[in-house]
């Protein structure tokens, strides 16, 4: 395929994916807004008012970056895992497999779709948070870079999950038993400085901690982790998982018999 044809193929996959989640916006965009509103009301206002400042910020201000990031992670992941798995189950993935569209374009199209949903939901949650706290962004470029890279990383992870999944159970196991615990224990609601040294060290192996703190650094200017460490970890994981996803697609794992 010529570069212009590849671009057309990429735009096709991306727009198809974006149209898909926009078409069912009640299922894809509204629930995170409602869930996060409840988090802001309960954890931020009601419980948060009983908790003192954290790193010089009110508790609700402290948790807002983490909650935005949590929505981005969950939605980027679940968008790709569900759409790719559905395409496998109903067979319409074959529309792409029989065509000359390169594997890189398929990957980028699906990842782009996941990122679009993750970032739109992130934006919605950010707008909702403005009803509960004023938000000033300390480092806009870092903020945008971290959120974009995080949504990219979890979109790739969702795709890998979908490639291996053989049933609908398989696409809920990882989000329920791996992603949710890692997110909740990734410093969304607390600073790891509040933990004992042992648990601080344990927390350091949780990749989500680096992303939440990188994003928090971008918005508030405070973080438990150095921003360099956050970016390094994101870069390494993105390259490694993209390479792995490409390998799986090329081999036809889960999609070609």
């Amino acid at each position: 395929m010529k570069p212009a044809q590849k671009l057309t193929a990429f735009k096709t996959i991306l727009s198809k994916e974006v149209m898909r989640f926009l078409r069912i916006w009640v299922q894809t965009l509204v629930p995170p807004a409602i869930t996060m509103t409840l988090y802001f009301v309960i954890f931020g206002n009601l419980i948060g008012s009983q908790i003192g400042d954290l790193d010089g910020f009110k508790y609700i201000e402290y948790i807002i970056p983490g909650l935005i990031m949590m929505s981005v992670i969950t939605n980027s992941y679940s968008n790709v895992v569900s759409t790719f798995f559905t395409a496998k189950m109903f067979g319409h993935i074959q529309e792409m497999l029989i065509s000359p569209v390169p594997n890189h374009i398929i990957l980028m199209g699906y990842i782009g779709g996941g990122m679009a949903r993750g970032l739109i939901v992130g934006l919605i949650v950010t707008l909702v948070s403005l009803f509960f706290s004023s938000l000033t962004i300390e480092h806009p470029i870092i903020t945008i870079a971290v959120v974009v890279l995080t949504s990219m990383l979890f979109s790739i992870a969702g795709l890998i999950n979908a490639i291996y999944a053989k049933s609908f159970d398989d696409i809920t196991i990882i989000p329920t038993f791996v992603l949710t615990p890692l997110t909740y224990l990734g410093g969304v609601f607390y600073s790891i400085n509040m933990l004992s040294e042992f648990w601080q060290n344990v927390s350091m192996v949780n990749p989500v901690l680096y992303m939440v703190n990188g994003f928090r650094y971008g918005i508030l200017g405070v973080s438990d982790i150095s921003p360099v460490a956050s970016f390094s970890l994101l870069a390494v994981f993105i390259v490694a998982l993209y390479g792995f996803a490409y390998y799986l697609l090329k081999k036809g794992v889960g999609i070609r018999s």
């Binding site: 395929m1 010529k2 212009a4 044809q5 590849k6 057309t8 193929a9 735009k11 096709t12 996959i13 198809k16 149209m19 529309e95 792409m96 065509s99 000359p100 569209v101």
Partner: peptide, 12 residues
């Protein structure tokens, strides 16, 4: 959309 998407995969 099904037809147009298929065309898109061929770079049309």
């Amino acid at each position: 959309e099904i037809i147009l998407n298929q065309a898109g995969y061929y770079g049309i």
